[in-house]
Amino acid sequence: MSEKLLEARTLTMQFGGLKAVNELDFFVNRGELMGLIGPNGAGKTTVFNMLTGVYQPTTGEVVFEGNPIRGLKPYQIARQGLTRTFQNIRLFRDLSVIENVLVAGSHLARYGLMAPVFETKNFRQLESEQYERARHLLDIFGLEGKKDWSSGTLPYGEQRKLEIVRALATGPKMICLDEPAAGMNHKETHNLMELIAKIRQEFSLTVLLIEHDMKLVMGICERIVVLDHGVKIEQGTPQVVQSSPKVIEAYLGVDEA
């Protein structure tokens, strides 16, 4: 029996009179690639924001590796191994490509404030380990050659990839990808999905994927949760979801005739 890595229990997010997400229950098994889909405004990104501590859920609980994480600060959640990327790219634009990656992994190397001044042996070793690790991650995504570029000058598709690299640098057990292929053409998307499969293997990652492209989600996800107006309307294997009348209704509307 597979083990639950993340579990959301009756998560609700209320903004004034609007319930963006209403009593949502779902779980993600360790090692799984799960899809979270739904029409525009269904509340998918709000779910990510609640999981990663950007929003404090109005009610409900998030359990990660058996520990409740609701109310923790985003950095505490990140350090427990739950991280994400963003629908609209949010790189540290003034930092170089490799600095973006190094910032994200910095909590993994611990040394004192004065260590850089005295260049202690421990410091030098940690520093070069971090640097090598960052380079390796960039290499997987074909960005190693541009490591000293200012990240804001990268082409769009590579910025998207750098976001994933940066998230990986935090040493995650689970990564939430918010429309990683948005704005990419078919070939780029295909290439990205292969990379996601690869990092999943290499880092034994669990992945929760928000994606608009139905075909893509159906092709790679093992299980899918469908949201509409903040409510879970369906969950199951791609086959189950594809043939669900509720899902078809949410995406295409009801035939009034």
Binding site: G53, P74, Y75, A78, T83, F92, N100, V103, H107, A167
Partner: peptide, 20 residues
């Protein structure tokens, strides 16, 4: 590095493990 990251986007920096 963390200071520069935080000055660009505090929330994102926090989500990348930086104690803002």
């Amino acid at each position: 590095k963390a200071m520069r990251a935080v000055s660009q986007n505090m929330t994102v920096a926090s989500m990348m493990g930086v104690n803002v």
